[in-house]
Amino acid sequence: MDLLALADFNLVARHGGIGRAARASGRPKATLSRRVADLERRLGLRLFERGAHTLKLTEEGRALFERTAALLNELDESVAAIASGGKRPRGTLRISAPLFFAQAAMGKLAAGFAMRYPDVRLEVTTEDRIVDMIEEGYDLIIRVNPAPDENLIGRVFLRDRLVVVANPALVRPEGDVAVPSVVRGAGDQGHVWPITTPGGRSQINVAAVLSLSSMFMVRDAVRAGVGVARLPISLVAHDLLNGQMVHWGDVDGPEVALWTLYPSRRLLSARVSVFLEYLKEAFPTGRPEELTSFITS
């Protein structure tokens, strides 16, 4: 197998076109096109569907890309590690993180990591959607309570819990009267919130008056007194301590756990390994108070 042709195929597949791959790598378009065509001829397979202005992976092309991209990346890492004496991780580390954690901690984490490991280029994308790690080229993803996936290995590095909070001036109504609420996202339109208090389980009837896309926006709206909200204790602990908010109860539901995930069939790269250790150092016990310190400091 011609590794150079395979590497050029991966380059084109990753960038979604020969022109974009050529601009990103500085390689001539004609060279990339010829090598991809040579690889298709040797394999007896069509790896790309070619349109007038588009280039799309075929089913066979997608399978080849998914199975070889990580292997080529590991090969590059091994060569770089040997060349540097294996002392320092290097290369690009691509991470996908959920919005709340990214806003709360990733800026400070990324800065500290970059200063400690200057040979690693850290790229962090903020999104709550489910991502395809292989196809989208991520080395590590951070997710809240992810669904089981046999293709991924994961570990919990931080735990949190949701609480119902309000401005002290907002009086909790009695009976079935609904209280104004602030929710995150248009899909969060439940009318009854089960809660747990020292007195036992109960519920709060709510009517959404604001739908916001960020937990920090929801917190600020609650501070202003517009309604109650379900928020992570890590985000509101300081407000509860100084009296800007009051605690109406804990949300009755599963715990909130933040996981780091990476592909099970991929060897753990030095970059991922040191980032996992860096997270462990930042959150040694994994308790919500450690995230609160990131938010308030």
Score class of each variant (00 low, 15 high):
residue 231 L to I: 08
residue 67 R to C: 08
residue 45 L to A: 13
residue 119 D to L: 12
residue 270 A to W: 07
residue 61 G to E: 09
residue 204 I to K: 05
residue 184 R to L: 14
residue 121 R to T: 15
residue 78 S to V: 13
residue 209 V to D: 04
residue 38 D to M: 05
residue 167 N to S: 08
residue 197 T to H: 11
residue 218 V to T: 10
residue 219 R to Y: 09
residue 213 S to G: 13
residue 273 S to G: 12
residue 225 G to Y: 04
residue 104 A to V: 01
residue 280 K to H: 03
residue 166 A to G: 15
residue 148 P to L: 12
residue 264 S to Y: 10
residue 50 R to T: 12
residue 166 A to E: 13
residue 284 P to A: 01
residue 284 P to D: 00
residue 114 A to S: 15
residue 180 P to Q: 09
residue 163 V to A: 01
residue 243 G to T: 12
residue 213 S to A: 15
residue 254 P to Y: 09
residue 86 G to H: 09
residue 238 H to Q: 14
residue 131 V to R: 14
residue 47 L to S: 00
residue 11 L to V: 03
residue 145 N to W: 07
residue 254 P to H: 09
residue 162 L to K: 06
residue 177 V to F: 12
residue 201 R to P: 01
residue 13 A to L: 11
residue 115 M to S: 14
residue 120 V to R: 08
residue 243 G to S: 07
residue 234 S to E: 02
residue 129 R to H: 13
residue 78 S to N: 15
residue 15 H to C: 02
residue 78 S to P: 00
residue 288 P to A: 00
residue 49 E to H: 15
residue 190 G to I: 04
residue 236 V to M: 00
residue 98 P to Q: 10
residue 9 F to D: 01
residue 244 Q to H: 07
residue 67 R to Y: 04
residue 221 A to N: 06
residue 124 V to K: 10
residue 220 D to K: 11
residue 192 V to Q: 13
residue 207 A to S: 15
residue 61 G to K: 01
residue 29 K to M: 13
residue 273 S to R: 14
residue 74 E to Q: 06
residue 16 G to Q: 05
residue 89 P to W: 03
residue 94 R to V: 09
residue 191 H to Q: 14
residue 30 A to E: 11
residue 71 L to A: 12
residue 90 R to T: 15
residue 39 L to I: 03
residue 294 F to L: 01
residue 47 L to M: 03
residue 166 A to I: 08
residue 20 R to C: 06
residue 203 Q to C: 10
residue 276 L to A: 05
residue 236 V to L: 04
residue 237 A to R: 00
residue 237 A to T: 06
residue 187 G to R: 10
residue 256 V to R: 06
residue 256 V to D: 03
